[in-house]
Design a binder for these strands. Structure first.
Length: 483
RNA sequence: GCAGCGUUCGUCUAGCGGUUAGGACACCGCCCUUUCACGGCGGCGGCACGGGUUCGAUUCCCGUACGCUGUACCA
C-alpha cells in the first residue's frame, strides 16, 4: 500500500511552530517512504475562519523548505482540498450513517445542552450527551422526528456510541490504546449550519483521499476512538495512527503565545534560518539516535522513523535554537549570505557597501554572533567611524606613552606594500620586536582607535578588510583628539 | 471530577535486562590567544517513588505520586 499522509490545519491564523513540526513529520515520513504529503484545509468552523490564513500557512511551509504534493493551491486527483467545498460529500456520508443506525438526529438547543451538562457536573458525572432524555429521534419517536425534519427544525446529527465495550486501536508511537465506550460522547457529526464537525470530515476525507497514516498532535488522542467508531460504522479500514508529542512552554503547558514567539513568521522575522528552525523542531521529540545535532532536510528524510518519535512532550528550548542558528550561520558561504546582510543594512543609516565587502564582514564576524542581523550593531565600526569609544577599554589601554608608541605606525602602514592581514601582522611584530615591547601594547590601542570597542575579531584581519585609507583616517583622527 | 497519555542531567535526548548511564544546549573552570568568540580539554548535573518478575533492573509488570492533554453545534 502506498504511503499517503496529510497535514490538516484549520485556517485560523499564522502557522504555529507546533503545526510546523506536525507538517514536517508528515512530510519527512512521506518522503522517507516515497509517498505523498497532502495539505487539506479544515475550514468547517465558519466562525473561526481567517481570510489570509491559508496562503500564510502554505508560505510558511515553503519558507521552511517543503512543499505539499496535493493542496488547494496545487490541486490533485482527490480534491477539493478545502473541507468547506466538500459539504455535499459529508451530507451524503452522514446519511449513510443515519440509515445504517450509526447516527441519529437531535434537536436540542445549546441552552438545553448547557443545562444538561450543569446537572451532570453537579451530580459528579462526566459531561456527556444523554441520549435517553434529550430531544432526539429516539425520545421523540419516528413520526415526530419526521415532522420536525419536514418543517426544517434546526437539528444536528450525532454519532451513536455503543453503551458498553472497549474501543481499541494501535498507535505507532504509543502502542495499544484502549478507551471504554461508556466514556465516549455521542459526538455531533453534522452541525445545524450544515457543516460537518472535524470528526466526521476528517474520517470521510482521510478515507476518500486514501490516507494511509494519520500523523497528528497528541491532543487528538482522546478523540481518536470516535474516529475509530466512524471507520467501523462505514465499514472502512482505518488508517494507521501516530500521535506525536506536544511542544511545550517552559512550564510544561502546551506551547502558547503567552510565553513568547510561537509562529513560524515570528522566527522568520527574528532572523532564524529556516534550516535551523526545521532542524531544531525536527529534533524536538524525535532523534535518529546518533550523536549528531545538525541535519539537512535530506538527512532528516533519510533517517526519519515514526517508531523513534518520543512519547513525552518537549519543552521548546529557545537557547538551543539560537545555538543551532549560529551553527548554520557559520556553515554557509559568506557570499551567499551577503545579499541578505545588504537588505538588513538598508534600515541603518550607514553608507552603502558592496556585496563583496558585506561577504568579507560576514566572514570576519560570524563566529561571534548568532544572527546575521547582529552584524550592523555588533560590527557597526565596519560600516561607519566609531561613534563612541569604550571608556573602560580606553582607560585600561590608552596610557600617556601610548601615543608615542602608536605614531610611528602611521608611517609604517602608509608605506606597506600590501595592506593584508599577513603583512600587517608581520610589520607590527617587527615593530614591537624592535622596541622590545609586548604586542598587546599596540593591539589594544589599535582596536580602540579603529573600532571603539573592546570586543571584535582579529585586529589585523579587521584592519585589512576596512582598508588602509580608512584605518589611517581613524588613527589620525583619534590621535588628534587624544593626548 | 472523569478519561487517556506521559515521567533518564535545568533543557533536548541516547539507552530497548548486565554500561564507570552516552551526546548536545546552558552553566562553571582550564588551555589556546590579540580582546571577545571559535576550538580543545575538564567539571557540575539525571533514571519520580514503592512493590514485584529475574542471578541481575533505567530497561519488563503492577501500584502511588506528579505533570500534561482531552472532556464544545473548535479544530
Amino acid at each position: 500500500m502506498s504511503v499517503r499522509v496529510r497535514f490538516a490545519p484549520s485556517p485560523t491564523g499564522f502557522l504555529h511552530v507546533g503545526g510546523l513540526r506536525t507538517a514536517l513529520y508528515n512530510y519527512l515520513f512521506a518522503r522517507h517512504n516515497g509517498g505523498k504529503c497532502i495539505l487539506r484545509i479544515e475550514d468547517t468552523d465558519q466562525t473561526r475562519y481567517v481570510e489570509s490564513a491559508e496562503t500564510a500557512l502554505i508560505e510558511a511551509c515553503r519558507w521552511a523548505g517543503f512543499e505539499f504534493d496535493e493542496s488547494p493551491e496545487k490541486g490533485g486527483e482527490f480534491g477539493p482540498y478545502r473541507q468547506s467545498e466538500r459539504t455535499d460529500t459529508y451530507k451524503k456520508y452522514s446519511k449513510i450513517l443515519l440509515e445504517n443506525g450509526s447516527a441519529y438526529y437531535a434537536f436540542d438547543t445549546s441552552e438545553d445542552l448547557d443545562k444538561m451538562r450543569e446537572r451532570q457536573q453537579k451530580s459528579g458525572l462526566a459531561p456527556k450527551y444523554d441520549r435517553s432524555i434529550m430531544r432526539n429521534q429516539y425520545t421523540l419517536g419516528e413520526d415526530e422526528t419526521a415532522r420536525l425534519i419536514a418543517t426544517d427544525e434546526p437539528r444536528v446529527v450525532r454519532l451513536k456510541v455503543p453503551i458498553t465495550g472497549d474501543i481499541r486501536f494501535s498507535d505507532i508511537v504509543r502502542g495499544e490504546v484502549v478507551f471504554a465506550a461508556r466514556d465516549i460522547d455521542d459526538q455531533i457529526l453534522l452541525k445545524s449550519d450544515g457543516y460537518p464537525t472535524y470528526h466526521l470530515a476528517n474520517v470521510v476525507d482521510d478515507h476518500l483521499m486514501e490516507i494511509s497514516h494519520v500523523i497528528r498532535a497528541e491532543e487528538w488522542l482522546p478523540s481518536t476512538p470516535k474516529h475509530v467508531l466512524l471507520y467501523q460504522a462505514f465499514g472502512w479500514e482505518s488508517p494507521k495512527f501516530a500521535h506525536v508529542p506536544l511542544l511545550l512552554n517552559p512550564d510544561k503547558t502546551k506551547m502558547s503565545k503567552r510565553h513568547g514567539d510561537v509562529f513560524v513568521d515570528d522566527f522568520k522575522n527574528k532572523g532564524f534560518f529556516p534550516e535551523a528552525l526545521v532542524n531544531f523542531v525536527a529534533l524536538c521529540g524525535w532523534n535518529p539516535s546518533s550523536e549528531r545535532e545538525i541535519y539537512s532536510m535530506n538527512e532528516l528524510i533519510e533517517h526519519f522513523a515514526l517508531e523513534k518519535v518520543n512519547k513525552a512532550g518537549a519543552i521548546f528550548d529557545y537557547k538551543k535554537l539560537e545555538w543551532m542558528n549560529s551553527q548554520y550561520l557559520r556553515s554557509y558561504e559568506p557570499i551567499e549570505l551577503a545579499p541578505e546582510l545588504l537588505k538588513i543594512l538598508d534600515s541603518y543609516a550607514y553608507p552603502k557597501v558592496g556585496v563583496e565587502y558585506a561577504a568579507q564582514v560576514i566572514g570576519l564576524l560570524r563566529e561571534r554572533i548568532n544572527f546575521l542581523h547582529d552584524i550592523p550593531t555588533f560590527g557597526d565600526y565596519m560600516f561607519t567611524r566609531p561613534l563612541a569609544f569604550d571608556d573602560e577599554y580606553k582607560s585600561k589601554h590608552w596610557k600617556p606613552e601610548t601615543k608615542a608608541n602608536i605614531t610611528p605606525l602611521l608611517e609604517i602602514f602608509t608605506s606597506l606594500q600590501e595592506f593584508s592581514h599577513q603583512a600587517l601582522h608581520d610589520v607590527v611584530q617587527e615593530y614591537v620586536a624592535s622596541k622590545q615591547m609586548a604586542l598587546k601594547l599596540i593591539i589594544h590601542p589599535l582596536r580602540l582607535m579603529i573600532t571603539g570597542k573592546q570586543v571584535g575579531a582579529g585586529m589585523f584581519e579587521t584592519m585589512s578588510i576596512l582598508g588602509r585609507e580608512e584605518v589611517l583616517a581613524r588613527m589620525k583622527s583619534f590621535l588628534e583628539n587624544n593626548p
